Amino acid sequence: MTTQAQVIPKFSEQKKAFSINELKRLIVTAKSMSDFDQAKRYLYSYFIPCADPHGVFWWDPNSKSLKYVIDKNIGKLIRPITKAFYT
């Protein structure tokens, strides 16, 4: 049985607010390293890196605007989620 990948919009096209629970679900349900692409695309649909100043821009669909988050505050916004694969 194959599962069809969820279609994830590109950066700034999301209509729903970012959900850490949705990100966690995508990571926890991943069965292989390639399954992490879904989680990556989900993150990239909300966040884009900024080099000067260092940080990220965060797409907020509720206000339809970009918010800037400095590097040191990213950990407050996105808590670490881990998953290990063993071969």
Rank of each mutant, 00 (worst) to 15 (best):
P53L: 05
V28P: 01
F85D: 09
W58R: 08
I27F: 08
N73Q: 10
S65M: 08
S63Q: 11
K31V: 11
M33G: 12
D37W: 00
K10T: 12
K72F: 07
Q38N: 15
L23W: 03
M1S: 15
K72M: 02
Q14N: 14
M33Q: 13
Q38H: 09
K24P: 04
D71V: 03
Y86K: 12
K64N: 14
F18L: 05
T82H: 10
K16M: 10
A84G: 06
Y86M: 10
K40F: 08
A17W: 03
S32F: 03
T82G: 10
P53N: 06
F85C: 06
P9G: 09
F18G: 04
M1F: 11
R79C: 00
K64H: 10
I78K: 06
T82P: 02
A39V: 06
I27M: 08
S34E: 15
A39R: 03
I74N: 04
P61N: 07
I48P: 01
Y68Q: 06
W59K: 05
M1T: 08
V56H: 02
I27C: 09
I27A: 03
I8M: 04
E22K: 14
V69L: 12
I81Q: 09
F36Q: 12
S34M: 10
Y46D: 02
Y46M: 07
K76E: 12
A30W: 08
F11R: 07
H54K: 12
L77R: 09
D52V: 09
Y46S: 07
K64C: 09
K76S: 11
K31T: 14
T87G: 12
W59G: 01
S65C: 09
P53V: 06
S65I: 01
F11A: 07
I27D: 00
I70Y: 00
I48R: 14
M1G: 11
Y86W: 07
I48L: 06
L26S: 02
R41A: 15
S45G: 12
T82L: 04
Y44A: 13
S63Y: 01
E22I: 15
F85K: 06
N73P: 02
G55W: 04
F47T: 05
T29G: 00
K64T: 11
V56L: 10
I78V: 14
K24L: 07
Y44H: 13
L26R: 15
H54Y: 03
Y86V: 11
T87E: 13
P9L: 10
L77D: 02
